[in-house]
Structure formats: structure tokens, C-alpha cells
Amino acid sequence: MEGKGKVLDIRFNEDQTCFVCGMENGIRVYTIDPLTRKTLIGFDEVGAVKHVDMLRRTNLLAFVGGGQAPKFAEKQVHIWDDVRKKIILQFNFELPVKSVRLYRDGTTGCRLAATFQEQICVYRLSKEPQLLKTVQTASNRLGLCEICSSSSRDLIAFPAPRPGVLAVLDSLTLGRARHARQEIWAHKSQLACISFNVKGTMVATASIKGTLIRVFDTTTGDKKVEFRRGSDTARFHCISFSPSDDYLCASSDKGTVHIFALRDQTLNRKSRLPNLGLLAQYSASQWGLAQFSVPIDCMCKCMFTHSNAVIALCDNGTFYRYVFKESGTTTRDGFDVFLDVGFDDDL
């Protein structure tokens, strides 16, 4: 039986029905509702995995070795086929890979985005993969790169070379001499978190300061709204839109998941501080509609399962489900240890 291991990475799939974990002892894929373990790829096959992503609900995964006992170098990306139970493609690079994204383009093709310290390489996957484009980024140690794919647009968001600037690129035009690129002055300091809504019409960002979340229109670059997490510095782990765009949730290293009302912003709390001098920036802010707590010493990823329900996955293996009301009250509706799920099947 495989040991429980340590979680190194957590990624939701594109339709947010599954999540995949890169582990010190391999890869695991889970369905969310109900919480079940779908796939176990052991240490003997892939070693320790630092970065991982899955293609929708298909049998294809991309991963990068890392952790304490990697089988593969951090300068390689491998594509795993879980039907054939083997690696089917290998990419070798000169630099360590900071993150990988696997997605379908607007037609029927499959693409891979490999993120490095200062660039992103986009490939069309086939028996002989084709490099479509290399784009320069800011110094990107976090490997920030998010994708939103539809029939009309394939958007890639990443930190532009100038600090605090977000670049949004339409990858459907990557093979052309000129391509659509939007640059958004999102923050004064370096970006720390990026997230698209389902339709790709909005993108949310946070900086390394960790106090504000800003939401922008991806076509015009205009700021739609600004939310305040708090006044002290924090590291954001995740930002996620609800499927209907009614709400947005975010998690950080403060051990709190915040929920904001995006459509009806009158539901959000306002500061009671006077709108004067240095206090004006706080008194004008929109604070969260609701919040709940998770372990403070864990990396946490969050998302909506229904219009009024949020799940949080922590790298200690815990799974939380909370429901919330427009009044701001939250109730824990579920708890599990996802690392334990499915182990009876291995005995």
C-alpha cells in the first residue's frame, strides 16, 4: 500500500469537478462531489511530484518532479496517460519548471504551457509537439500562469515584465505575427495570485502585499471592483469565482477563507472608520461578506461547489465544506481527510 505522503501541489481541473495532488509519493486525483479517490499513480511510476495539472476530466496529466525524492528532474515535464498507465511524452528544458498547465484550445487540440522564472513556453501536443510561442514574463518564482479556454478565446494570464502589470494573451492567435495582448496595471507591487472566471470575461489579481483583490474586465482592462482582505501583509494561496459570477472567494496564509459578493456588492461589509486622511483607503473598501477558518500553517485552495457553498483543500490533507448566507453567517457542512479516502481499497 502507498503511504499517505506529503502534499506538494493542489490543482482543480478546468470545470472544478476534480482536483489533483502532487505528492512526495506520486500523484492522486479526486472527484469533489462526492469526495472519492479516482486515480493513484505511485512513487515507483513518477517519484515525488512538485507541480501537476490535469486535462479537464480526461486521462492526461502533466507533471514536474521535485520534493525530497524526485524520480525526474525539475527541468523536465512529463505527460502521463492514465489509461495506458505510462508516460507518453517528455519535454527537456535548460531551466527549472515553475508550473505546468494542460488545456484544450478553442478547436480540438491539446496544449501545454510550461512556466519558467522569466518566460512561458506554449506547445501544441501531438506525437511531435510543436512550440507555438515563447513569452517573456516578470521574475516569476511562483510560476503564475492561468488559462481560460473557450470556443472563441483561449486566454493566458501571467505577470508582464513590469512589476504589478498583468498580461492577458489570446493564445488562439499565437501562431500569427500579431496577436491580441492586454496589459493591465493591476498593482504597485509584484503579482502573487491570478484567477479567471469561467467565461474568461473577468480576471482577479492580488499582489505580494496581500491586502487587496482587484477584478478586471479582460477585454477592456478596466477595473470592475476592489475587495479588501485585510490591512496586514499576507500571502494569497488562491482566488476563485463562483460559476455564476455572483461571488468570489480567496484563501491566504492567515488561515481564513474570505467570501465576497461580486454581483450584489451591497452585501459586502464596509469599514466603520471615518473617510478622512490615511483612513480613507480603508473606509472606502469593500470587505468580505463572510469568512471561515482553516489551519493557519497550511497551504489552502478554495472553490465554489454551489452558489452558496465553498470547499477548502489544505495541504495537510483536510477537506472542508462551508455554506454561507447573504447575512454573512457560515456553517460547516462537511469535513474529511482526503488523504485517507480510498485507502481501504488498497488493502
Rank of each mutant, 00 (worst) to 15 (best):
L125R: 03
P129N: 05
T115W: 05
T36A: 12
V97P: 03
K71R: 15
Q68G: 05
I120R: 01
H78F: 06
R124G: 10
V97D: 06
S126L: 05
V100T: 13
R37L: 13
D44I: 11
R57Y: 08
R11P: 00
F12Q: 04
P129K: 04
R104Y: 13
I32H: 09
E128I: 11
V52F: 03
L40V: 08
E14M: 05
W80I: 04
K6S: 10
V83N: 13
G106A: 12
I79P: 00
T36Y: 12
A114F: 08
N59P: 00
A48K: 01
C21L: 12
G22W: 00
L132D: 06
K85S: 15
R104Q: 15
G26A: 10
G26F: 06
L61N: 05
L40P: 00
Y103H: 13
N92L: 11
M54K: 15
V46Q: 00
T107Y: 10
W80A: 02
L89C: 12
T134F: 02
K85M: 14
T36N: 14
L112T: 09
I88E: 12
M23I: 08
R84Y: 09
K98I: 01
G5I: 03
Y30P: 02
L8H: 07
G26W: 02
N25H: 05
D53G: 07
Q90A: 14
R37F: 07
V97R: 03
T58P: 04
Y103S: 13
Q68V: 09
Y103P: 06
H51P: 00
V77Q: 01
R124I: 07
P34F: 09
T115S: 15
A48H: 01
V97S: 06
V97C: 10
R111P: 04
C110G: 07
T36L: 15
D82L: 07
K71S: 12
V135N: 03
N25T: 11
L40R: 05
K4I: 09
R37P: 05
V97N: 06
S99F: 01
Q90C: 09
Y123V: 04
R84E: 15
C121G: 06
S126K: 04
S99K: 10
F63T: 00
E118W: 02
D82I: 09
E128N: 12
I10N: 01
N25D: 12
I87D: 04
G106M: 08
N59F: 06
R111K: 14
D53N: 14
D15C: 12
T58L: 05
Q130D: 10
N92Q: 11
H51G: 00
D53L: 03
A113S: 15
V7Q: 00
R56Y: 10
G66A: 03
R57Q: 15
L89I: 03
P34T: 10
K4V: 11
G67L: 00
G67V: 02
L102W: 02
L40E: 07
K4G: 02
Q117I: 11
S126P: 01
T58A: 08
T39N: 13
T108C: 12
R84D: 12
I32G: 09
P34W: 07
G3V: 09
L112D: 07
G65S: 03
E2F: 07
V122H: 01
F43H: 13
G65C: 04
D44Y: 11
